[in-house]
Amino acid sequence: MSDAALTPTAPTRIASWVVICFLLLPLLVIVPISLTDQDYLSMPVDGISLRHYANLFTSREWLWSFTQSLIIASISTLLAVSLGTLCAIGCWRLGNRISEAVRLLMLLPMIVPTIVYVLGFYRLLVDLKLLGTYLGVIISHVVTGIPYVVVIVSTALASFDLRYDQAARSLGATMSQSIRLVLLPNIKAAVASSAIFAFIHSWDELLIVLFIAGRSIFTLPRRIWDGINDKLDPTMAAVATMLLLISAALLFLDLALRKRES
C-alpha cells in the first residue's frame, strides 16, 4: 500500500476536525466563562478576571465539597479496586461458564440505566438506614465503580498465562502469596488504570448523590447542580474547569502508565 492511500483526503480531514470540535468545544467553552469579569454566567465583557477562582478557593462551602468528594472518591476507589480485582482474578482462575456469568453480572451497573439503579439503591439504603450517610454514598459508588475494574483487570489477565499461577503454587506459594508475589506485580498497570477510572467515576457522579445523599453530603457535582438551579454564579465555571483539568490529568497519567508498560 502506498503512502498516498494512507493520507486522508481533504473532505475526510474536514469532517474529522468538525467531529473533534463538536466533542471538545462544549467542554472548552467553560474556560473563558470561568474567566468572566461579570457576576453571572457569561463570556468576559471588559476583560478577564480571576476573581471567581479566588472565590472558589476561599469559599468554605466549595472547599468542603471538594474535600467530601475527595474522601468519598478515594475510599470508593480503594474498595472498588480491591473487590473488582479479586473478582477478576477469581473468574480468571476458574475460567469456566460460571465465571463468565459472574463477569457479566459485574457489568450490570454499567448496562442498567443509572436512574433505574438509583431507585434500587434508594429503597435498599432506606431499609439499611444509610440514607444521607457517607457509607451509603460510598457503597453506591463502589458498586457502580466495580465494572470498570473488572473489565480492565480481566482484559489484562486474559493475556496472562495461567501457568504462572500454577508454577507459583507448585513451587510452594500459597494462593495469597501467588496473588501478591506473581499476579499483582504483572498486572499492576491495569490495576492502576482501573483505579483511575473508578476514581473519576465517583468524582463526577451526580445522579446517585442527588437521590441518596440527604442534606449533609454535598459532593462537587452536587454543589454545581444546586448552584445552577439557584443562581448563575460563574464560580461554577471555575469549578468545572478545575474538574476538567483534574480528569484530564488523570487520563494522561493513565496513558503514560500504559505506555510505560508496553
Binding site: Q166, A167, S170, L171, G172, V182, N186
Partner: peptide, 27 residues
Amino acid sequence: PDRREFGMVFQGYALFPHLTVAQNVAF
C-alpha cells in the same frame, strides 16, 4: 499443590517475567 513439595518444570517454563533469574530461583 503448594503442600505437595514437588518441583515442576512447565511447558514454556513459566518463569516469572517480572523477576530476574536469581529472583525466580529464589522464589
